[in-house]
Design a protein around this nucleic acid. Structure first.
Lengths: 210, 210
DNA sequence: GTCTATACCGCGATAGAC
DNA sequence: GTCTATCGCGGTATAGAC
C-alpha cells in the first residue's frame, strides 16, 4: 500500500519503519530466516516495541504481504486499462511489469517464496489478487486473437511464459550475476532482456509479420 | 549422483535414506524450515545418528545440493550431445528439461530457493555446474543462427527465457493450481504447457516459417 | 552405528515499569 | 509507545553407554 524499498527517506512512525524493513528483510532471508530482533534493530526499536505494533511475527508478515500485494494491484490496474490493442497492449504490460519489479525487488522475492511454498502463508490472499488479473488478461488475449490482431496461442500458457520469464529475471538476478559478467539489474542489462523478450513475443504474436 | 525422489524403494543404508528424505524435506520447507529431528524421524533414525553421518545440518544440506546438482549435470550432458540441428535441438533440450524436472520436483524447488537467496549456500557450486552448460548452449545457438537454421535472437536472453519459463512452471506449480482448476503437474496440463512453449519458440525461431 | 540423556542457546512472546 | 527483564520452547549439537 504505502511506499517501496528504494531510497525512501525513513518514515517517521516506528510502525511504518518496521513494516518497511520487515519487507526487505523477509524478502532477503524468508520468514524463518529473520529474527524479529533483527527487524526491530534495523528499525531502531526493541523487539517488544515491534510486538506492540504487530501482535506476532505471523501478523507482521501478513501485514507485509498485504502492503506488497496492494502495491502490485494498484500498478496493474493502471497498466491493463489503457485501451491499447493487439501487441501494443502486451508490450505495455510487459513494460509495466519490468518497471514495477525493478523498483520493488523485494516484492518479487516475497511472491516467489510464497509461490514455492505452495501451502504457504498467503495462498488465498495472493490468489485472490492474481486471479482477476489473470482472467482479464486471458479475456483480452482471446479477444485480440479472435479479432486477428494476435496470432493464436493458448492465452493461459502465454501468460505463464510471461510470468515465469519476467519474475525469474528479477528473483534470480543474483544468481544470473554469477553466470554472465554484468549486473543483471543495471539499466542496460535490463533493457536488453526486455527487448529480447518483446522481440520474441512480437515474432510469435504479431500476425502480419515479415 | 545417486537416486531421485520418486517411488524409489527405500535405500538400505541409513546414510542414503537420510540423504533422500533430506532432499525432499529441504525442497519442501527450506533450510530453516526443517528440524533435523524431522528428517531423522522420517528416515527412521534418531538425530544423533544423522549427525554421525553428516557432521552438521549445514553439511547435510551441502551433501543434498551436491547430489541434486550431480543428477542435473548427468542429464543435461546427454540431452545436449545429440548432434541435432536447428530447432530440433532446442526442442529436444526443452523436452529433456520437462521430463527431468517432472521426475525431480525437489530439484527444482531447491535450485529456486538457492537462486533467490543469491548469497546462498551454494552460489559457486551451482554456478560452476551451470556455466559450462549455458556456454555450450549459447555457442550452439550462435552457430545455428549464423548458419541460418535459426532466426537471430540474443542467445543469452533466449536461454534466460527458457530457464525462467520451465523452472517457474514447476517451482510455482502449487501456486498455479490456485489460479486454474487443473493439476499443473498432471500429464495433460504439462503437455499443454510444453507444446505452448515450443510453439512460441518455433514461431519465433524457425526461419522458413509460413 | 545407533541409541538416551543433556547441554546450550536463539528466538518469540509476556510482564510490568516508565 | 517504548523500554528492561525474563520465561519457555524448540532446535542443534555433544557426551557417553551399548
Amino acid at each position: 500500500m504505502t511506499t517501496p524499498d528504494a531510497a525512501t527517506p525513513r518514515p517517521a512512525s516506528s510502525r511504518a519503519r518496521i513494516l518497511l524493513v520487515a519487507r526487505t528483510e523477509f524478502a532477503e532471508r524468508g520468514f524463518d530466516g529473520v529474527p524479529l530482533q533483527a527487524i526491530a534493530a534495523r528499525a531502531g526499536v526493541r523487539h517488544p516495541t515491534l510486538l506492540y505494533h504487530f501482535e506476532s511475527k505471523e501478523l507482521l508478515y501478513r501485514a507485509v504481504i498485504e502492503s506488497v500485494v496492494g502495491d502490485w494491484a494498484a500498478e496493474t490496474e493502471r497498466a491493463i486499462s489503457t485501451g491499447l490493442l493487439g501487441f501494443e497492449q502486451v508490450a505495455a504490460l510487459v513494460d509495466a511489469a519490468f518497471r514495477f519489479f525493478d523498483r520493488h525487488g523485494d516484492f518479487v522475492r516475497i511472491v516467489r517464496r510464497e509461490a514455492i511454498e505452495g501451502g504457504g502463508r498467503m495462498e488465498e490472499q495472493m490468489a485472490e489478487f492474481m486471479r482477476p488479473f489473470l482472467e482479464d488478461a486471458v479475456r483480452f488475449l482471446r479477444k485480440e486473437m479472435r479479432a486477428g490482431r494476435l496470432r493464436r496461442h493458448d492465452p493461459v500458457e502465454l501468460m505463464q511464459v510471461c510470468y515465469g520469464t519476467v519474475l525469474t529475471y528479477f528473483s534470480d538476478a543474483r544468481f544470473r550475476a554469477n553466470l554472465v559478467d554484468e549486473d543483471p539489474l543495471s539499466a542496460s542489462a535490463l533493457g536488453r532482456h526486455k527487448r529480447a523478450l518483446l522481440k520474441l513475443l512480437r515474432t510469435a504474436l504479431e500476425p502480419e509479420l515479415r
